[in-house]
């Protein structure tokens, strides 16, 4: 799991790589912290390098989504691999998180 955050003003370009699972979920939460503390943040996450997410990982995406909704920001997940997209579809998360 590797999280790279590039910030320009209120624009956040985030690159996710690897797996999000139980073993590194806590680290993932820690890595996302700067995003959770920002207001009016326009967050774009490039998921092309993300190979897997557990339900725990989904939970952090949900938290992020709720955060941007309550802080006048936006969240877009891009270039998601099919097997990851499927998880978002099955759980219905693609209904509440914008995926491009």
């Amino acid at each position: 799991m590797n999280v790279t955050i590039n910030q320009e003003g209120n624009k956040y370009n985030v690159i996710l790589e690897g797996r999000v699972d139980t073993s590194n979920a806590a680290q993932f939460e820690q890595d996302l912290k700067p995003l959770m503390e920002a207001s009016n943040a326009e967050i774009q996450i490039d998921c092309s390098g993300m190979t897997y997410t557990s339900s725990q990982g989904l939970r952090y995406f949900l938290m992020l989504q709720k955060h941007v909704m309550s802080h006048q920001g936006s969240l877009v997940l891009r270039n998601m691999q099919p097997q990851v997209k499927e998880v978002f579809d099955i759980t219905g998360f693609s209904n509440i998180i914008k995926i491009e």
Partner: peptide, 9 residues
């Protein structure tokens, strides 16, 4: 239909 996981919305 997937709907959405409970506890989300």
């Amino acid at each position: 239909k997937s709907n959405i996981a409970v506890g989300v919305l």
